[in-house]
């Protein structure tokens, strides 16, 4: 699947940002972390992701594809979980770090005591767009990688085809 760049985002840069995020959260204390991240409902049996990471992904799906993706967002997140199960260990840990980083992004960069999942749709879109346009290459890479994966899986879902006027795979045309 077009998960461009997941394989090449540098581990050290994630560690740097992860440690920074961790430090900020530790500074705020465990109680603060809990109040920021909150609890996520069970996402069902998962292979790699935690319930919280699955929640972040579900919210990324509606952020990237719009509220019309509400019905498919769980399946897209499940697909990501299945995809991770086949990835090398270093890439899995990098991506889990990226999900945490995205979740903490509003607190780290927007100076608001909110997690990504705690934002409403408009605020999530604005936050994600700020990563797409960021001067920081690593934030742009993370946004690019998630945007490509989510879009590819979402638009490969037959339930999405009618609204884009795509009739689906052809079954034996003639000519052209």
């Amino acid at each position: 699947m077009a998960t461009e760049g997941f394989a090449v985002i540098r581990r050290r840069r994630f560690l740097k940002w992860g440690l920074g995020a961790g430090g900020a959260i530790l500074g705020a204390g465990a109680a603060g972390y809990g109040s920021l991240i909150g609890l996520a409902p069970s996402a069902g049996p998962l292979r790699i992701l935690s319930d919280r990471e699955h929640r972040t992904l579900r919210n990324l799906v509606t952020t990237i594809c719009g509220p019309i993706a509400m019905r498919e967002r769980h399946d897209v997140a499940d697909a990501f979980d299945g995809w991770l199960a086949d990835e090398p260990a270093n890439i899995v840990s990098d991506l889990q770090g990226a999900l945490l980083w995205m979740e903490l992004g509003p607190a780290l960069y927007d100076h608001r005591w909110e997690s990504f999942s705690g934002l409403d749709q408009a605020a999530r879109e604005a936050h994600f767009r700020s990563w797409m346009e960021s001067d920081d290459l690593v934030r742009r890479q993370v946004a690019t990688a998630f945007r490509k994966f989510v879009n590819l899986v979402f638009h490969d879902t037959p339930s999405t085809w009618a609204r884009i006027h795509y009739p689906g795979p052809a079954t034996g045309l003639r000519g052209s």
Partner: peptide
Amino acid sequence: GTPGIVSTLLPYIGSESATMMGRYD
């Protein structure tokens, strides 16, 4: 390309993405 790959190339998110993909044909 097929919808999945075309959508990965577009620069939009949210409702803008849905609008653009609505013009896929």
